[in-house]
Structure formats: C-alpha cells, structure tokens
C-alpha cells in the first residue's frame, strides 16, 4: 500500500496542524533522485544514533553507498529521519574516515600506518603478555578468582548485539572482568 506523494503531503500537513506551503517548488518535485537509476540496489538498515531505532534504506551501486533515507515501512519512523539520521550518508562517505590502522609507538609524536594483520598479531601478543603478568588465581583468603584485572573493555552501546556477545564471551574466557559500556544497570 504505497502512499502517493500527494497523500503523503496532505498527511504531513495534517500532522503539523498548519497550512504551510509545500517546501519544494512544482518544478523541483519533478526531479528524480539517482536512486531510480539502473543497477541501484536497496538494503534495509537501522539508524546508528539514538535508541529510537529508525529504519533506513541504504541505496548502493557497485559497492558504493549513494544515498541513505528513512524507510517508509517502519512503524517507528514511517520514512522520517532527524537531522542526524539524515546525515548518516555524510558519515559513511566522510573523507575523515579511517581506512588504515594507525599506530602510535610509546613516546612518539606521530602516527604510523600498520598492515592490519600485523596489528592483529601485535595486539594478541600484548593480551597474552599482560594476562600472564597480572593473573590472579586466588585472593588473600584462598578464594578462587581465576582472572586478570589489568585489561579493560569499554564500549558496547553503539555496536551490535552479536558484537557485544563475542566480546563478553571471549574476554570472560580469558579471565577479564573489567568490562563496561555506556549503560548503567
């Protein structure tokens, strides 16, 4: 049941409770976004910002995102997005985005680049080393602890459930208990 643009505008007007002019000129209304071009695909996503959970439509072609809009099917946002949600596209294509590992040596003034696999190996080695150096098998009263308090994990409210799950599963199995995120319960 697609809503025709005319009806949609009537609906918006009724929601606003005012009789404002249509914000787009009649000529402008005839323009069609690139999302209608041949070869453009559409995926469904969720807005990364607040917890309202607006559904987004991600348009992409040849492995590149070309537009992100509100999903009209969602009972939560019914096609709308706020200024942040509308800027999701700007975040994805931002020239400031990182695409290489940045590494800063101790006492260095500079970033260096590292190959991803090298960085992963280095991190794994550091985890192993600090874990071995800081292991607590039991406390002063002989109670079993089986842990290391020297590694912390911070964050979780902006990443996926499945990612949080892997973090808690792996880190607890390594004996790490300083695990925390933005939530307080």
């Amino acid at each position: 049941m697609a809503v025709r643009p005319k009806d949609l505008w009537r609906k918006i007007r009724s929601h606003l409770g005012t009789t404002v002019e249509h914000p787009v000129s009649p000529a402008g209304r005839e323009l069609r976004a690139r999302i209608k071009d041949p070869g453009v695909k559409k995926s469904v996503s969720v807005c990364p910002y607040c917890a309202v959970g607006c559904s987004q439509l991600v348009y992409h072609r040849d492995g590149r995102i070309i537009d992100i809009e509100g999903n009209p099917d969602s009972p939560i946002n019914a096609g709308t997005l706020c200024p942040k949600g509308s800027a999701t596209y700007g975040m994805v294509v931002s020239p400031h985005r990182l695409a290489k590992v940045r590494y800063r040596r101790p006492y260095s003034r500079e970033w260096e680049e590292l190959p991803l696999e090298t960085a992963m190996d280095m991190i794994a080695e550091r985890v192993k080393k600090v874990r071995e150096e800081s292991w607590e098998e039991e406390d002063g009263r002989g109670r079993r602890l089986s842990r290391s308090m020297a590694v912390a994990s911070i964050g979780g409210a902006a990443i996926d459930n499945e990612e949080n799950y892997l973090i808690t599963k792996l880190f607890h199995s390594l004996g790490f208990v300083r695990i925390t995120n933005q939530a307080r319960i």
């Binding site: 807005c47 917890a51 964050g155 409210a157 808690t168 695990i179 925390t180 995120n181 939530a183 319960i185």
Partner: peptide, 15 residues
Amino acid sequence: GHATIQGSTDIATLY
C-alpha cells in the same frame, strides 16, 4: 540514548 544501549545490557558487556 544509544542505538543499542538496551542491547548492551541485555547481551551485557558489563562487569
């Protein structure tokens, strides 16, 4: 306040 702050306590990354 965050996209999955509820999820990050349900599938907790908390101590």
